[in-house]
Design a protein around this nucleic acid. Structure first.
Lengths: 250, 250
DNA sequence: AGGCGACCTGTGGTCAGACCACACCGCCGG
DNA sequence: CCGGCGGTGTGGTCTGACCACAGGTCGCCT
C-alpha cells in the first residue's frame, strides 16, 4: 500500500472515530507527517484527495481559519467526479438526463409528502436533520424557492442568469426532499447539466417563449409541492425536464 | 489559483479535447511538469486527485501498463466520496438506504422494460452502450446474475462471502438498467452499504433463516426482471431492501 | 494610558534534487 | 535458439529549503 494511501486510511479512521468534529482543524501538515512517520509530500497528497472529495478545506496563513478544516461538502466530490467523467466522454448526456428525471421526480414526491406531514393538524415535522442554517427547514427552503422564481420573472434577466437560477431552483427542490445524499448527487450533476443546457438553449427557436413556459412550469411544480401533492409535483417536474430536452432536440 | 489546480484544469481541458483516449497514457510526471513549467510534486498532486476520481490509474515500472493510464471508473470517485462522508458522519445511514431504494426500484423497472424490449418479436435491443466486455449485454448480465445467485445457494457459504455476493448482485441489477451513471452511483454506495449491512447482520436472530429468505427474494426479483415485468421487480426489490433493514432494526 | 505599526510565528504552497523499487526490453553469452 | 542479466524509464518517497500569507504580539510613539 502506498504511503499516501496509508495516511488517507488513517485520517479516515480518525474521522470515523470522531477525532475531529465538523469545523475543527486537522493537525498541521508537518505535525501530521511527524505523527505518522511519513514525509510531508505524502501527507499533502492525502489532504489533496480529501480536499477534492469535499471533506476538508485548506487555507494559508495563521489564525483559526488557517490549515485544513473539516467541512461538509458531499456535493463537491461527487460533482467533480461527474464533471471529469463527462469531460472524458465516458458518461453520456442521456444517462445524466435520465438520472436527473429519476432523482427529481422522487424528490418532488418526497417533498410533497414532507410538506403534507409538516402542515398536518399536529404540526409536527419529522426529525430529519434540518442543517445548521436558519432557513433550512421546509418552510425556509420553500421561501427560498419562491424568491428564486420571483427573480426569474424579470423579463430583462439574461439567459445565462436565468439558467443559473433555474439550476439552483432544481437543487432547492431536491433539498426539500430532506435526503442529503440525493441532494449532494443532484448538486454534483448540476455542473454537468448546466453545460449542455447552455448548449441546448442555443438551438431553441425562441428563448423568450421557452423561458415563459419554463416559468409557468416551475410555478406549477412548486405549487404542487407546497400543496403537499407530491404525485402532481413529480408528474410536473418530469414533463418539465423531458419537455425541455425534447425541445432542444436531444 | 494554486499550481496543482492549474495542472488539473489543463489536464481536464486536454481530456475534454480528446488529447488522450481511454486506455492511453498521460505523459510521464517529469515530462508533464516540464511541459507545464511546474514542479513534479504539483503534477503529482493533480494526478493524485484524478486517481481518486477514477479518471486515471497509475502503475510503476516500464512497458505499456506503466505510468498514468486514462481509465473509466466513475464509481471509484463517487464511491470514495460517499464512503468518506459517511465516515465523517455527515451522511446519515437512513439517507443512504433511502437512496438505495430509490435507485434500485428505478433500475428494476428500467431493467424489466429493457428485457421486454430485447425479447420483443423483432428482437432488436436498444443501442445503448454495451460496454467493452463480451458479456455486458442484457443476456450476459442476466447470466452473470444467475450464476451469482447459484453460488449464493451454497449453504456452507460464510456470511461475509454471502454479503459480498449480495452486494455484487445488487450492482448487477442496476447495471441491467443500462444507465452508467446510476450504476456508478450504486457501485459507489456499495461500500457504504456493506459496512452497515455487516453491522446489522450481527443483530439478526438467525442468519440462516434470513439468508434463506434473501435467497428467495433475490430469485423473485431476478425472475421478474427476466420476465420483463419491471413493476413486479421494483416492488420485490423494495420489499427486499426495506424488509432487511426493518429486520435488523434500523 | 492608549493606539498603532513592525516584527514574530505558524501555516500551507512550491520547488529542486536525490534515491529507491519496480518492470519491461534488449543485449549477450551459453 | 534460449535464458539470464543489466539498462532504462517509470512512479514512489524523502529531505531540505524558501516563499507568501495572515494572525498575534510586543514595543514604540503619541
Amino acid at each position: 500500500m502506498r504511503t499516501h494511501e496509508r495516511v488517507l486510511a488513517r485520517i479516515e479512521a480518525d474521522l470515523a472515530a470522531g477525532r475531529w468534529a465538523l469545523g475543527e482543524r486537522l493537525p498541521a501538515e508537518r505535525s501530521l507527517a511527524d505523527e505518522l512517520g511519513v514525509s510531508r509530500p505524502s501527507v499533502r497528497e492525502a489532504i489533496r484527495v480529501l480536499e477534492a472529495m469535499g471533506i476538508v478545506r485548506t487555507a494559508v496563513g495563521s489564525g483559526p481559519d488557517a490549515g485544513a478544516t473539516v467541512i461538509d461538502r458531499p456535493a463537491a466530490g461527487l460533482g467533480a467526479a461527474v464533471r471529469l467523467h463527462v469531460a472524458s466522454g465516458t458518461l453520456a448526456v442521456r444517462d445524466v438526463v435520465e438520472t436527473r428525471v429519476l432523482l427529481e421526480t422522487w424528490a418532488a414526491r418526497a417533498a410533497g409528502a414532507r410538506v403534507a406531514r409538516a402542515s398536518a393538524p399536529d404540526g409536527a415535522d419529522d426529525d430529519r436533520a434540518e442543517g445548521d442554517g436558519a432557513d433550512d427547514g421546509v418552510a425556509g427552503v420553500l421561501g427560498q424557492a419562491r424568491a428564486l422564481l420571483d427573480r426569474m420573472d424579470d423579463p430583462a434577466l439574461p439567459a445565462d442568469a436565468f439558467r443559473e437560477l433555474d439550476a439552483t431552483f432544481h437543487v432547492l427542490l431536491v433539498r426539500l426532499s430532506g435526503n442529503a445524499l440525493v441532494e449532494a448527487i443532484m448538486t454534483g450533476l448540476r455542473g454537468a447539466v448546466e453545460s449542455y443546457v447552455a448548449r441546448g438553449s442555443a438551438a431553441l427557436p425562441s428563448w423568450e417563449r421557452t423561458a415563459a413556459r419554463l416559468r409557468a412550469e416551475h410555478r406549477a411544480v412548486l405549487d404542487a409541492v407546497a400543496a403537499g401533492d407530491g404525485e402532481r409535483a413529480a408528474t410536473a417536474v418530469r414533463a418539465h425536464i423531458e419537455g425541455f430536452y425534447a425541445e432542444t432536440g436531444l
